[in-house]
């Protein structure tokens, strides 16, 4: 049975593309057959995060317009045999594809894959509608900041109106030291506000920058963020993995933490 998952956030720059790339890699590492679709037409990025930018021949718009067959546009990942990328078009805009065409594309991919991951563009316009329409399940990526949470709440409302069956939260860029000092909202705080189940917590980790620079997924590294993405991948497949909040805490924070029990 294939599952179509859209990764969305509302606000830009919170880590949708990084999350898509790493969940795609994480699921493929578990032996699943996965295709990632970059639906951000005009601003494609998933290809560079995956380090596959030099292999693009055809793109999403070519497939939708019938210039090529789906198989010709799918790029096979260099690391995982079961992982494919359908890149977006860089020279077109969001209006090049409509919701009906996206549903058709997703339905065509379903029989061949275990998971279809849709990397949604920021915003709530046509690009968002295209990404969401064919999905069975949504992952909302947010950071513990007022602006990102506000936008996430708006997106959750829109997904509810669209009758999305399952909506879960990935909290990105969490800093344990700040949470301990009471200067950053904790995962519990964010879940309280947004009212959707938590799928995972990604610590703020410098390895994200390093891996993105290299065009490699994090899931292969021994980093905290890599571990978090591996755990989320397992949870997606239905396995129970305990939720953990990791990160560096300075000695001073530990000492003051004794007095500042919150």
């Amino acid at each position: 049975m294939c599952e179509v998952i859209v990764i969305t956030s509302g606000k830009g720059g919170v880590g949708k593309t990084t999350t898509t790339a790493n969940l795609g890699s994480g699921l493929a590492a578990l032996g699943k057959k996965v295709v990632m679709i970059d639906t951000d037409i005009g601003l494609r990025n998933l290809d560079v995060v995956m380090g596959l930018e030099n292999r693009i021949v055809y793109n999403l718009v070519d497939v939708v317009e019938g210039t090529c067959r789906i198989k010709q546009a799918l790029i096979r990942d260099k690391r995982y045999p079961g992982l494919y990328l359908l890149p977006s078009a860089q020279t077109r805009d969001k209006s090049a594809v409509n919701e009906h065409q996206m549903v058709k594309l997703v339905e065509n991919l379903r029989p061949q894959f275990d998971y279809v991951l849709l990397d949604c563009p920021a915003g709530i316009e046509q690009g968002f509608k295209n990404a969401v329409v064919g999905a069975d399940r949504a992952i909302i990526v947010t950071t513990p900041e007022v602006s990102a949470i506000r936008d996430a709440d708006r997106i959750i409302g829109l997904l509810e109106a669209n009758e999305m069956k399952q909506t879960e939260l990935v909290l990105n860029r969490v800093r344990l030291d700040l949470v301990k000092r009471g200067e950053m909202m904790s995962p519990t705080d964010v879940v309280d506000i947004l009212g959707i189940p938590l799928l995972g917590i990604i610590p703020d980790d410098e390895q994200v920058v390093i891996s993105t620079n290299q065009g490699d997924p994090l899931v292969e590294t021994m980093s905290m963020a890599g571990r978090a993405y591996r755990n989320i991948s397992l949870r997606i497949t239905g396995e129970e993995v305990p939720m953990e909040l990791t990160g560096a805490v300075s000695f001073w924070t530990k000492v003051t933490g004794i007095f500042l029990k919150n």
Binding site: R181, G182, M184, D189
Partner: peptide
């Protein structure tokens, strides 16, 4: 009041 509570 911690900044987290203000944000909340």
């Amino acid at each position: 009041k911690s900044s987290k509570d203000i944000a909340k």
